[in-house]
Design a binder for these strands. Structure first.
Lengths: 165, 165
DNA sequence: TCCGCACTGGGCATCCTGCTCAGCGACCGC
DNA sequence: GCGGTCGCTGAGCAGGATGCCCAGTGCGGA
């Protein structure tokens, strides 16, 4: 994957500020020509810099205000089937295979405590699952953010965005 | 927060399929009038159903392909300062206050193993942090998804979208 | 029965989009 | 030093989308 240059990063920051900005507005904000912005956006899209829109849907709005992390210990030989089973539970929003004591960390969205208990049980009943420890997220201390990282890349100095090959 | 009706949910699914679709295209896909779609989108936006665009930026693209989860044990009295310190680390992408054995679960993005170690050390040096256990995410078994949950709400039957108050 | 609400379909001026083209400046390899 | 190549610019153009307005309609609740 190509390394993003300053122009790309500035574009990402601007997009984060005004996600629905038109190409013209973005060009104005960054003092670039409309053509350049358009070309960059196409390239960024093709390179897969933008993750699916799904990620922008609020669980709260869907009536699932509770977030919980479930640490799952499994028979590692059966990981494939277990993954499939987890995919079958819509409330399992995300799951990672981990190093360390637990094998799988699943992120779960629930309507309320009962609902969470139900989902927890459902995970426990999956064949090959040994144990599942649920931790409820009480506060989001740091809300998902990418811009600080992008800005650190900008400040840290990348190659300039003009001329050259 | 108002409960989303069938029309809203169908709109979310359609948007997930084609995030850059025009209002006209969405209206066509859902067999609604353009005016209705436009009004719904405005309302969904006002209600905060859409999370920030930042969430759609790929860490891989930013040169941070490694994801790690850091379980942090802290002096709970100092949680406020600790949160501020975590916010000061750009690589800390998200952090939750948890019930259970650990106090804080932080999600971290890193360039490579060394980088991860550096960030881990930086977290450890925060005043009030007792211990920090890092687990590296090796695979994303289930990529972030919301649509299955939305569809389960659709299938489960919500109130219809037309008429009434 | 009447009211209010949400959706519909039409219309309108303005702006954006997607595309093309020529020109220019900078850096590359030769 | 020189041509080649790449990225940015500014202009132009047809088609379409946007944002806004309004009147009409069907349904449920008061």
């Amino acid at each position: 994957m190509r390394t993003l240059d300053t122009t790309d990063l500035r574009l990402l920051v601007e997009l984060s500020k005004t996600p629905d900005a038109t190409t013209v507005a973005l060009a104005q904000a960054l003092s670039l020509s409309r053509n350049t912005v358009q070309a960059r956006l196409v390239r960024l899209t093709e390179e897969g810099v933008f993750l699916p829109f799904e990620r922008r849907i609020s669980m709260d709005a869907l009536g699932h205000p509770l977030t919980a992390f479930v640490q799952i210990h499994v028979h590692q030989q059966r990981l494939t089937e277990i993954t499939a089973a987890l995919r079958g539970i819509p409330e399992v929003v995300q799951a990672h295979g981990l190093t360390g004591s637990a094998d799988v960390l699943a992120r779960v969205a629930a309507r309320n405590a009962e609902d969470l208990f139900r989902i927890h049980s459902r995970i426990l009943q999956i064949d090959g699952v040994d144990r599942a420890d649920t931790s409820l997220a009480m506060t989001e201390l740091v809300a998902w953010r990418t811009v600080p990282l992008v800005e650190s890349l900008l400040g840290g100095g990348e190659a300039g965005g003009k001329g050259g090959r």
